[in-house]
Amino acid sequence: MTRTIGIAPSIAEMEAMAQRALDRIPPAFAEHLGAVVMQVQDFAEDDLLAEMDIESPFDLTGVYEGVPLTERSIEHSGTMPDRVRLFRMPILLEWSERGDETLEHLVAHVLVHEIGHHFGLSDEDMHTLEEQVR
Rank of each mutant, 00 (worst) to 15 (best):
residue 2 T to I: 14
residue 4 T to N: 14
residue 5 I to C: 11
residue 8 A to E: 08
residue 8 A to I: 12
residue 9 P to Q: 04
residue 11 I to K: 13
residue 13 E to I: 13
residue 13 E to M: 13
residue 16 A to F: 07
residue 17 M to F: 12
residue 20 R to F: 07
residue 20 R to D: 03
residue 20 R to A: 00
residue 20 R to W: 08
residue 20 R to S: 00
residue 23 D to M: 10
residue 23 D to H: 11
residue 24 R to Y: 10
residue 25 I to A: 06
residue 25 I to H: 03
residue 25 I to E: 02
residue 28 A to E: 14
residue 29 F to L: 13
residue 30 A to H: 11
residue 30 A to P: 09
residue 31 E to G: 13
residue 31 E to S: 14
residue 31 E to T: 13
residue 33 L to T: 02
residue 34 G to N: 08
residue 35 A to Y: 11
residue 36 V to A: 07
residue 36 V to T: 08
residue 36 V to E: 04
residue 37 V to K: 05
residue 38 M to W: 13
residue 38 M to D: 10
residue 38 M to T: 15
residue 39 Q to S: 10
residue 40 V to N: 07
residue 41 Q to C: 14
residue 42 D to A: 09
residue 43 F to C: 06
residue 47 D to F: 15
residue 48 L to Y: 06
residue 49 L to I: 06
residue 49 L to P: 05
residue 50 A to N: 14
residue 51 E to F: 14
residue 52 M to L: 15
residue 53 D to A: 13
residue 54 I to N: 03
residue 54 I to S: 05
residue 56 S to A: 11
residue 57 P to V: 04
residue 57 P to C: 05
residue 58 F to L: 13
residue 59 D to M: 06
residue 60 L to D: 06
residue 62 G to R: 03
residue 65 E to P: 00
residue 68 P to D: 11
residue 68 P to S: 13
residue 69 L to E: 06
residue 69 L to A: 05
residue 70 T to Y: 12
residue 70 T to P: 10
residue 70 T to F: 12
residue 71 E to H: 08
residue 72 R to E: 04
residue 74 I to G: 13
residue 74 I to T: 15
residue 75 E to A: 14
residue 76 H to W: 07
residue 77 S to R: 14
residue 79 T to P: 03
residue 80 M to R: 15
residue 81 P to Q: 08
residue 82 D to P: 01
residue 82 D to K: 01
residue 83 R to Y: 04
residue 85 R to T: 09
residue 85 R to E: 08
residue 86 L to G: 02
residue 87 F to N: 03
residue 87 F to D: 01
residue 88 R to Q: 10
residue 89 M to G: 11
residue 89 M to I: 15
residue 90 P to R: 01
residue 94 E to W: 11
residue 94 E to Q: 12
residue 95 W to P: 02
residue 95 W to C: 01
residue 96 S to A: 09
residue 98 R to G: 08
residue 100 D to C: 00
residue 100 D to V: 00
residue 100 D to I: 02
residue 101 E to V: 00
residue 101 E to D: 02
residue 104 E to I: 00
residue 105 H to P: 07
residue 105 H to T: 10
residue 110 V to A: 03
residue 111 L to S: 07
residue 112 V to L: 05
residue 115 I to C: 06
residue 115 I to W: 01
residue 116 G to E: 04
residue 117 H to T: 09
residue 118 H to G: 01
residue 118 H to P: 04
residue 120 G to E: 13
residue 120 G to T: 10
residue 121 L to T: 01
residue 122 S to R: 15
residue 123 D to E: 15
residue 123 D to H: 15
residue 124 E to H: 11
residue 124 E to A: 12
residue 125 D to W: 11
residue 129 L to F: 09
residue 129 L to K: 07
residue 131 E to N: 10
residue 132 Q to K: 11
residue 133 V to C: 05
residue 133 V to T: 05
residue 134 R to N: 08
